[in-house]
Write a protein that binds this DNA or RNA. Structure first.
Lengths: 94, 94
DNA sequence: TAGACACATCGAAATATTTCAATATATCTT
DNA sequence: AAGATATATTGAAATATTTCGATGTGTCTA
């Protein structure tokens, strides 16, 4: 599966915010899998704002969400991240 | 030289627009070096808009500008692009 | 089942980005 | 030097994004 311009644009936009970059770093630091509550604790933002940023990351395909009881678990989508960086490096997408 | 969060954010923002992605692709297709007039011809946007997008790419460090008479030549900054993709892949930046 | 807890959604305000007409600047040509 | 050409800047309107309080939804615990 290879990414098109619209997807590259969306992923880039998702990466174009310091709060979201921090969230991704947090998840990566936790071995690619982090919980919403942890992310909220590390963030200076209000809960709905964090929720919004997580949604943007999900819609870009950078993370996947999974419910565990009343908690949300977020997993880094390494495949998408790799496809993104690969496509951007070569500027190879339609 | 390695990129920090602010720089990653800025580059991502610059990449988060279809018009700018097209511009970069055009320059890449031309061997990493393209002219303003060409870029304007290929773009559906008005001249000031193209000029604006080029400025965003320059400020992100993705391209460098050089004057040739009354024309502007834009060169892809492969080093920055590579540092960006590398940092994003590893989510490794401060 | 009532209350607590975790998270999502809505709606509105604040801020940022995109776009273009008008105009400025710099360089080339005649 | 005057006009033409190439690009940049300004200022304003349209649009998108960010943020948060209030509230909704689903799940756990007592």
């Amino acid at each position: 599966m290879s990414l098109n311009t619209k997807q590259i644009e969306k992923i880039s936009k998702a990466l174009g915010d310091a709060n979201r970059l921090k969230i991704l770093q947090h998840i990566a630091k936790k071995g690619g899998c982090g919980f919403c509550s942890e992310i909220q604790e590390e963030s200076p933002l209000a809960q709905p704002s964090v929720s919004h940023h997580l949604k943007v990351l999900i819609e870009a395909g950078l993370i996947d969400a999974e419910k565990e009881g009343r908690n949300q678990k977020y997993t880094l989508n390494d495949a998408v991240l790799k496809e993104y960086t690969s496509a951007v490096t070569m500027l190879n997408f339609a």
